[in-house]
C-alpha cells in the first residue's frame, strides 16, 4: 500500500467518527463570516486594536456559548463560532470607541431602508 492509500484510509476512518471534516470544507459558510473575519484582521493589521484584546473576548464568548457535551456537525460548529466571533468583534469595537450602539442601530435601519428601496426599484423598472 502506498502512503497515499494509507492516508486515504485514515481519512475515511476519521470521517466516519467526525462528520464533514474533509479538506473541501468551506472556509466561510456565509458572506458575513468572511466580512467580520476580515474586519478584525484588518483592524489588527492597521494596529487599531491589539489581537490579544479581541482574542480574550472571543475566548470568553466561546466559553459562554459552546458546550463540550453536545455533538455538533461541522456546519453547526462554524455557525456558533462565527456568531461568537461577531459578538466579540462588536464588544471590541464598542470598547475601542469605534462604534456606538445607537449608531449601529441607525446604520442597520439605513441599510434596511435602502435594500427595500432597491428591491422596489427592481420590481418597477
Amino acid at each position: 500500500m502506498n502512503p497515499f492509500e494509507q492516508h486515504r484510509e485514515a481519512l475515511d476512518l476519521a470521517q466516519a467518527t467526525l462528520p464533514d471534516r474533509s479538506d473541501s470544507e468551506p472556509l466561510f459558510r456565509t458572506p458575513w463570516h468572511a466580512r467580520i473575519f476580515a474586519l478584525i484582521v484588518a483592524l489588527v493589521k492597521n494596529e487599531e486594536i491589539p489581537w490579544k484584546s479581541f482574542q480574550e473576548k472571543l475566548v470568553s464568548t466561546l466559553k459562554q456559548h459552546q458546550s463540550a457535551d453536545v455533538q455538533l456537525t461541522a456546519e453547526e460548529i462554524d455557525l456558533q463560532y462565527f456568531e461568537c466571533w461577531l459578538l466579540a468583534a462588536e464588544e471590541t469595537l464598542l470598547e475601542a470607541g469605534f462604534v456606538e450602539t445607537s449608531q449601529v442601530a441607525r446604520q442597520i435601519e439605513a441599510i434596511r431602508t435602502s435594500v427595500v428601496q432597491t428591491r422596489a426599484d427592481q420590481l418597477t423598472s
Binding site: W32, E90, I108
Partner: peptide, 22 residues
C-alpha cells in the same frame, strides 16, 4: 449579516480600514 455590514460601513467611514483591504 446586517450587523456586520453596519459595523463595516461605520469603521470604513471613519477611515480605520480600507474597504479594498477587507
Amino acid at each position: 449579516a446586517l450587523r456586520v455590514r453596519a459595523l463595516e460601513e461605520i469603521v470604513v467611514a471613519k477611515g480605520l480600514v480600507d474597504p479594498e483591504a477587507l
